[in-house]
């Protein structure tokens, strides 16, 4: 019973915050700085050495100014290599988003931006038919690309992002022609990468600070 009350009071305060927030966003002089958004994402990984795969994750955003936003994300991507090897990636990182065109009050439907950032990543390759045949590595990566928000309402957007991610780290590779599959870790650093196409949805919870 106490939990129910707590849940409803939390929910009510969240939604009431959004009401007061919506009045701010509707204002002509709305200031974008300090907005905090929360969202979830699906990522399609392609054009890598391993093939393509899908991933899931989430992110939050803290807007630094009218033209600059920051995104903090984490995701998990699984790639099927020739139906023989499972390559799993975990990313945790951040990006800076630059809006060339101002969009006060988030009223324009499309809001294009340039995005670039850095992340830490973990890759694990496993023979699908033999879980003990596996190798993993930790690393670092940078990513950059182009994107756009689709502002369905001033508070809610769908974002489409296309980024290329380059890993600065030792790399894993799998020879799937051999039986059993041989997974190797190359100790030298390699510029290995993949194209990440992301669709995410984001809801602006409120202002973290006022100017």
């Amino acid at each position: 019973m106490k939990c129910n009350k707590l849940f409803f009071s939390f929910l009510s305060s969240l939604i009431l915050t959004n009401f007061s927030f919506s009045q701010q966003t509707n204002s002509e002089n709305a200031n974008s700085s300090g907005y905090f958004s929360l969202g979830a994402r699906s990522t399609f990984s392609s054009f890598g050495d391993e093939g393509s795969g899908i991933g899931t994750g989430g992110q939050f955003r803290i807007q630094a100014g009218e033209h600059v936003n920051t995104e903090w994300f984490a995701d998990y991507i699984a790639i099927n290599v020739n139906n023989k090897v499972r390559s799993e990636y975990m990313h945790i990182g951040w990006s800076v988003m630059y809006y060339p065109f101002a969009n006060p009050g988030f009223k324009k439907l499309f809001q294009p931006y340039i995005v670039a950032g850095h992340c830490f990543d973990y890759n694990k390759m496993t023979d699908i038919s033999n879980n003990s045949n596996s190798k993993n590595r930790w690393g670092s990566a940078v990513q950059a690309g182009i994107a756009t928000h689709i502002n369905l309402t001033p508070k809610f957007d769908i974002s489409l992002t296309c980024q290329y991610m380059i890993h600065f780290t030792e790399s894993l590779s799998a020879d799937t022609d051999l039986n059993p599959v041989i997974i190797t870790k190359k100790n030298e650093s390699a510029l290995q990468g993949h194209l990440l196409s992301t669709i995410s949805f984001n809801y602006k919870i409120g202002h973290l600070w006022k100017k």
């Binding site: 699984a78 099927n80 023989k84 699908i128």
Partner: peptide, 10 residues
């Protein structure tokens, strides 16, 4: 729903 299971058998 779209997805793949890649454990033991694809």
């Amino acid at each position: 729903t779209l997805g793949e299971h890649n454990y033991d058998v694809h």
